[in-house]
């Protein structure tokens, strides 16, 4: 239950942060620290996604052919 709550809290935090960004167009000063943490988090997640896409996308996608199943 506690992890669920943490995730919910975190979700709200992300939502609020996004709202702040889109409404004001730039980070609110009071939330500066929180935003920074959020951006850092997102950046490192995107870096991880870069890693899983390391191979040649064009070649990989073209080669992905299966026989039809059920």
């Amino acid at each position: 239950m506690s992890t669920e709550k943490q995730q919910e809290h975190r979700k709200r935090h992300i939502d609020e942060t996004e709202d702040t960004q889109s409404d004001v167009g730039q980070s609110d000063v009071g939330n500066g620290e929180m935003d920074e943490a959020f951006v850092e988090d997102l950046d490192s997640l995107l870096d991880e996604i870069d890693e899983i896409l390391e191979e040649d996308s064009q070649e990989f996608v073209e080669n992905y052919i299966q026989r039809g199943g059920q």
Binding site: I49, L53, V61
Partner: peptide, 22 residues
Amino acid sequence: PQVKHLDLKYHNVRQEESLYYT
């Protein structure tokens, strides 16, 4: 092709290769 690739990666069940598991 990166979009199609990432779409497939979402469904990859090998966790170190998977968008979903990331």
